[in-house]
Design a protein around this nucleic acid. Sequence first.
DNA 1: CGCTTAATTGATCAGGGTCAATCGTGGTGG
DNA 2: CCACCACGATTGACCCTGATCAATTAAGCG
Lengths: 227, 227
Amino acid sequence: MKAQARIATAFSPAEALAARTAWLAKEDEAFRPTGTVMEVPEGREICAEGQDTDRFYKVVSGVVRVCKFLNDGRRQIEAFHVAGEIFGLELGAERLLSAETITDCSFIVYRRHSVEQQAKSDQALSRQLFQHAMRSLAQAQSHSLLLARRGAAEKVAAFLLDWIAKATEGGVLHLAMSRQDIADYLGLTIESVSRSMSQFERVGTIALAGARHVRIKNRYALEMLAA
Amino acid sequence: MKAQARIATAFSPAEALAARTAWLAKEDEAFRPTGTVMEVPEGREICAEGQDTDRFYKVVSGVVRVCKFLNDGRRQIEAFHVAGEIFGLELGAERLLSAETITDCSFIVYRRHSVEQQAKSDQALSRQLFQHAMRSLAQAQSHSLLLARRGAAEKVAAFLLDWIAKATEGGVLHLAMSRQDIADYLGLTIESVSRSMSQFERVGTIALAGARHVRIKNRYALEMLAA
DNA sequence: CGCTTAATTGATCAGGGTCAATCGTGGTGG
DNA sequence: CCACCACGATTGACCCTGATCAATTAAGCG
């Protein structure tokens, strides 16, 4: 698996550390039950709809997309996850969502049953699980708000602002995902995303250096749009 | 306050019981910390964005909408809640969402701090809080999916199907909320909701007896649309 | 350096938003 | 009890944005 050799090239160790540190700052203490480290190259499925929910994951490095495939062939991306974030934890016995790597990734795999068992006697762990769920909830609600936004440009602006916090390096935003991924996250087509980006560039709000490197030239303009 | 005299007329006791029973069936045991019962007439604010998150609620009877007011004047409804459901629990110190009564309601008010304190030594309670959060998460994700749906008719169909489970009586669906509420929940305009309903009636999928009484004549047709 | 795939751009179209008028219903007061 | 009133819902006409289809350009990779 050649991809194994270039793990975490999409995100530098410095970035991964920064992301994890930010996460730790929000938590009193890290989520630390024992789990297995796992490395997966870009573009692979981590878990799929219909599978057993006996495991969940925490990203160590890389970017993951969590999504659902609709019967009409479309794909809706529920969330992107970066270092420090937990994903794949669901209530039912069968998964409703799939997860895939967008870049080469490494993450920790937890056994759900084992963690839940441990939580019965570990108040701190119990609280962390609750907080994870509540944070995911807040994120899902803010995603709903994003999807309900009127214009395409507003959605894209809001998306860019979200990602400034997650993957900025020297004023340049690194988008780990394709235009298709962005479109599926925002409920737009690839063309609409592209047009919004081009429009932002035309009016001097951003500068594009390749499709995935975005320099934010006028953050205020984006904030006005995203509101 | 005359409305106090007709509390719970919008939902019969039988309906409220059915709803609560359904909820209990999903839980091993009921959510049972102590709280204060409160009655609020229709159309009142229960809590608002920016307020302290020191309380949360469980619906005993009636219907509640949880929503966010956007800076452009629009309103996005995050969820409707019926008997047995918990709402108003948030992670941050300040509320991001408001809650309002759609019908006359009664609910139980819990003190967040007190419940969290109790959860430290009560494993079952701790688990219930987690499960509530996870269930809310699943509901928020399914709402995202709804908002990402292509057509107006598909959204309305999915909405009707959701509500068959929550408020059906003798094959007739009672909608507790206005067209505007439905529109704000689905990210549509009132006119689009109305047109979809009329269209369903025209092709014989439903029959309307007043705007809020819907007889489902062809559930399968709705399911095909909602997919 | 060329090839393959992703991204951009353009032209056209359809669905839902908007504005405006009408209808119906439930609630009120005579 | 009935007529009226006010508000919510429906319907219609038109417009605008984003989807679709299609062609071109750019970029990453061998």
